[in-house]
Nucleic acid binder design. Structure first.
Lengths: 138, 138
DNA sequence: GTAAGGTCTGTAGCAACTACAGACTCAAGG
DNA sequence: CCTTGAGTCTGTAGTTGCTACAGACCTTAC
């Protein structure tokens, strides 16, 4: 194909981006902040990635999708990298995060009800009393 | 107490921060971006707040907690501020926000399910192999 | 061999804060 | 009356987690 020699050796940055769906520049950012390892380079300085980079980047992105902060993901990666991870630790972190997600859902449901009520009140001619303020300010 | 004359008139910035849990500087930021009104000032230029500012700031913070952007909160505040809008406009904005709330709930439910699933895979034992990490890497 | 396109670096921008620095104000104690 | 210490004022710079250049360099296809 267009870059046979390189693709025999591994992925270029754009290949990694495509393989993971990650933004091109974000890969460099993750490297800068130490979440992705400094990859080997070609003689000309081009980064060369392999399958392991694809997995790691997917791991990071999946964590972000699940609403983990960078620091939380770093923590999870440390467990992986350390090789000393215990199931108990990871489970504990996950459940803590699960609890906060459930709290957010509960809050949003309250807002949803308030908005739905407002909307139904809005069918008349007059501007209604707004229960949103009460719901949010409570 | 130490500033009786002022506290008879209202809250100072630090009082408002304490009453709402908002960061001191963030109050000024919200004022700068037009989410909080320019408050009255003492002769020396000190901001003076009252109960209405407490409610409004709580409203903003709650919205932020729930993941609304500044622009969305601005929209909600417009609803609350009311005044010049017709009922149709209010209803339209309300339903738009309702849709975004429901989308957020759906997102969080998806995250919740993923977290609950990964958590349930985990034995909680002190073994180095963790199915949650495997699931994230998958 | 040259043009198109990928990669490199550093840096600047974004949202939404958060934290100074340096000047000013104010109430209380001596 | 003066000092002291805490609170406030302004503008600006730093933070997080990206994202998007600019300008130079490298590779590949034709």
């Amino acid at each position: 194909m267009q870059n046979r020699r390189l693709s025999e050796r591994g992925y270029r940055r754009a290949d990694l981006a495509k393989a993971t769906g990650c933004n091109l520049e974000t890969i460099r950012y993750y490297e800068k902040v130490g979440m992705m390892p400094d990859p080997p380079r070609t003689a000309a300085g081009y980064r060369i990635y392999d399958k392991s980079h694809v997995s790691r980047l997917r791991f990071i992105m999946r964590g972000r999708d699940l609403g983990f902060t960078i620091e939380e993901i770093r923590g999870l990666l440390d467990l992986v990298d350390g090789g000393t991870q215990t199931c108990a630790e990871v489970k504990e972190r996950t459940e803590r995060h699960l609890a906060s997600v459930r709290a957010k859902i509960a809050d949003l449901r309250r807002i949803e009800r308030a908005l739905a009520t407002t909307s139904s009140l809005c069918s008349g001619e007059d501007v209604p009393e707004c229960p949103i303020l009460d719901a949010l300010a409570a």
